[in-house]
Nucleic acid binder design. Structure first.
Length: 750
RNA sequence: GCGCCCUUAGCUCAGUGGUAGAGCACUGCAUUCACAUUGCAGGGGUCGGAGGUUCGAUACCUCCAGGGCGCACCA
């Protein structure tokens, strides 16, 4: 039979088959590993676990995913070969807003058409999502990922729903859930609230207007948002500033651009007496700081912009008719006409935009909003607040972030952390189990006095019944922020809360995933979701499991093009990882992605770099051809008598092994890749293989040389396997044609 | 405003308290012998600037300059 070695290495001919072999072996599942070798035995008692950051269920694999998968697969394969029971768990994210938007666009539907058919709508979106899921899963497989597919999870499946509800109930019980009417970030385009983290600021040139509410109003006010001034209720000045004498006075402005204002002058430390006019117009409904000031002084709130960005509640004929931009122009025009506009200057200021939709963010008051309070003390966690727990998890060293400087970034973020708004007004997601009295509670006869006990809303999995009235409770329509469910990911994928409950109930501790694999060892992801995801997981795990979610966080950077530009469809510089795997092989792409790429640093990928790594794969292929053509499998024990060339290569080999092991244990894969590359190409191939050609012709040295050739190749294959799994596995099969001897489960360095 | 990072060969980047490395690019030579997806040889950097610590600094500290990023934001 002609050997496959008769031709150059063609990744496309082998990759699918090799992946199928791996999968069929069952070795991706830590429970199904083959018996350990002698060298693996002691490690087999240990476990190594990771979760794949769940990609968007409707997404397509991009270069960032490819990097994530590559790095994690290197960790997983290395630990597995070392002998550890290695679990790398796959899953996908329902990504509520993104998926719903994509669905509506693709199917040319409008959510309003489903007003009365919410369930039907959600089913349609879900079917669509799950249909798409197979695409990205197939793509992840193509990257060679050694994920345990038997444990595949989805953020919106039934097990995860249970976890989400349980988490919410426990937080509610612990008093960590705030509910009510709050000022929120409203995304006008996306028609939903978003958390502070989901806002991006864009610096633009705009006008700063200085004006007076009326001719006899004593204090000039500056603003970039004249239209919101229709909702002003006060002017705040520093208690000791130049406007001190007016504090406490009240002004009735009969006509401010057609509306009526009642402006109270209050003194507040938050106002910088040196800045601007030294006083601030207070718009409690449309500014968080103003809202706080208003609260301190017991001022009313007057909402003048609604969820569609339309003016309301001003008593002018603009109400319900004109939008923000037009209102601004009209207010400015009015100020000019009335000669109340004192100054207009061009300044740079920041506009808040929703990260997902790109829509402008307006601050609005909204009812029935849920927040997770980060400053409430939790008795069952030593009286600490979530904020403190989050800080301590890293400060104590229980969680190590690589690279280390991101710990500072994390602390800085924690220090500025506010309560987390978890209510979203989209439908595709976990519906918040909150029920409202609808219509209002009207106590039955004899219970009139009990109205005070009636609850406006109840948090419950099932529809509650009011003890005192016949009114129905109606479930709120909001869903949870996607990050609420992904925050649970490290343990919701491992059987929480079911396993945790079994343990609490004192049932004989069955071997279960939660006990075995949580906290997970490594959480690897891009630094761009440090706050969105990493921090949320720490919060959730600290409160719900009383432990950290993971021990090590490995952060990678962005992948950029040769010009260091971010890859984007609009720039047309996107490198499609799947194209590259087809063209150069998955191994080449993987190696190119991590070669010379330090953690936390943005990296550069070019087709040329990938091509270079294909050359390396080919080099290895030819080394293997040479070794196999010149040796046979019988002899394995290393010879005592060695030539200088023999000694040299064996020394380099053991040096490479030592360094690689040390660096791999410390997750320094970018250095390991270089070391192995150097060894294989420039030591083994360039030096020893050349020397061996002479030695093979020498009767006295021939046998020893064969042994060393095989030994070195075998070792090199194990070193390289985590990085380039396909080609190394293929060569391994030529070396060891016996069935079931898969390199992926072999001992690293044997 | 607060904080983080970067500045090393033409390009993209690793790296370390003991006078520098990789990939790509470049130059010359070689080539039926595992591989042209190749081999051999070579050129190229006072490691952004200034001070300090040290026997010794590219690496540690301080300051400066340029660039990037995160958070906050003042009306």
């Amino acid at each position: 039979m002609a050997s496959i070695f008769d031709k150059p290495y063609e990744p496309r001919e082998h990759e699918e088959n090799i992946y199928r072999m791996w999968e069929e072996s069952g070795f991706f599942n830590p429970d199904k590993l083959p018996p350990p070798t002698a060298g693996q035995a002691s490690e087999r008692k240990k476990r190594f676990s990771m979760v794949l950051p769940p990609p968007n269920v409707t997404g397509v694999l991009h270069i960032g995913h490819a990097l994530t998968i590559t790095i994690e697969d290197i960790f997983a394969r290395y630990q597995r070969m070392r002998g550890k029971k290695t679990l790398w768990l796959p899953g996908t994210d329902h990504a509520s807003i993104a998926t719903e938007t994509k669905f509506l666009k693709e199917k040319k539907l409008n959510r309003n058409d489903y007003k009365e058919k919410r369930g039907e709508f959600i089913n349609l979106v879900n079917d669509y999502a799950l249909q798409n899921q197979s695409v990205i899963i197939k793509q992840i497989r193509a990257m060679g990922a050694s994920l345990d597919w038997s444990r595949l999870a989805f953020t919106l499946d039934e097990k995860r729903r249970r976890a989400v509800y349980e988490a919410f109930f426990r937080m509610n019980k612990a008093g960590l859930i705030k509910h009510g009417e709050y000022l929120i970030n409203w995304d006008i385009k996306g028609q939903t609230t978003v958390s502070d983290d989901e806002i991006e600021y864009e610096t633009v040139k705009g006008s700063l207007y200085t004006f007076k509410y009326s001719k006899d109003f004593p204090i000039p006010i500056a603003t970039t948002r004249p239209e919101t001034k229709l909702g002003d209720v006060a002017v705040a000045a520093h208690p000791e500033g130049k406007w001190k004498k007016y504090i406490g006075k009240e002004y009735n402005i009969e006509n401010f651009a057609g509306t009526r204002l009642n402006i109270k002058i209050v003194g507040d430390e938050a106002v910088d007496p040196e800045f601007g006019t030294g006083a601030v117009g207070i718009t409690p409904a449309h500014s968080k700081i103003d809202g706080e000031i208003a609260q301190r002084h017991g001022l009313p709130t007057k909402q003048v912009i609604n969820e569609y960005g339309v003016v309301i509640n001003t008593g002018t004929d603009w109400d319900g008719k004109i939008k923000i931009k037009e209102a601004r122009e009209k207010v400015i025009e009015w100020l000019k006409n009335e000669k109340l506009l004192e100054k207009e200057e061009v300044i740079e200021h920041n506009i808040a935009k929703a990260q997902r939709s790109g829509g402008i963010i307006e601050i609005l008051p909204k009812r029935h909003q849920f927040f997770i309070s980060v400053n409430t003390s939790v008795p069952e966690r030593g009286g600490k607040t979530l904020k403190e727990l989050m800080r301590e998890a890293v400060e104590s060293g229980k969680i190590k972030i690589i690279p280390g400087h991101f710990e500072k970034t994390y602390f800085h973020w924690i220090d500025n952390l506010h309560d987390w708004n978890i209510s979203r007004q989209v439908w595709y997601g976990h519906r918040i189990p909150a029920w409202y009295h609808e219509p209002k509670c009207v106590p039955r006869q004899g219970h009139e006095g009990d109205i005070v006990k009636c609850k406006e809303f109840i948090v419950s999995a099932e529809k509650p019944k009011c003890e005192f009235c016949d009114a129905e409770f109606i479930q709120g329509t909001d869903t949870f922020d996607t990050w609420f469910s992904s925050g649970l990911w490290t343990f919701s994928t491992l059987g929480w809360p079911a396993y945790a409950e079994a343990a609490t109930a004192g049932k004989p501790g069955p071997e279960n995933d939660l006990a075995n694999f949580h906290p997970i060892d490594v959480l690897e992801t891009g630094y761009d979701i440090l706050f969105f995801w990493i921090a949320k997981m720490i919060l959730m795990s600290e409160f719900l499991t009383g432990d950290v979610p993971f021990r090590t966080v490995y952060l990678h950077g962005l992948v950029r093009d040769e010009r260091k530009q971010k890859m984007s469809k609009s720039l047309g510089n996107v490198i499609d990882p799947l194209d590259m795997t087809k063209k150069y092989g998955t191994d080449a792409l993987r190696m190119a992605l991590i070669f010379n790429t330090a953690p936390g640093t943005d990296s550069v990928i070019s087709e040329q770099k990938i091509k270079g790594m294909k050359n390396f794969a080919n080099k290895l292929w030819n080394i293997a051809r040479f070794v196999l053509a010149n040796t046979s499998p019988e002899n394995e024990a290393l010879p005592q008598k060695q030539t200088n060339a023999d000694k040299d290569i064996l020394e380099k080999l053991s040096e490479t092994e030592k360094n690689a092991a040390k660096n791999l244990d410390q997750f320094r894969i970018h250095e390991v890749a270089q070391e192995i590359y150097q060894f294989i190409w420039h030591e083994f191939a360039d030096v020893y293989l050349e020397a061996s050609k002479l030695q093979l012709k020498d009767g006295a040295l021939k046998e020893n040389t064969k042994i060393i050739l095989r030994h070195t190749l075998r070792q090199a294959l194990t070193f390289l396997h985590p990085f380039m799994p396909f080609i190394t596995e293929k060569i391994w099969q030529e070396l060891y044609p016996e069935k079931n001897k898969l390199l992926m489960a072999e001992e690293w360095s044997k």
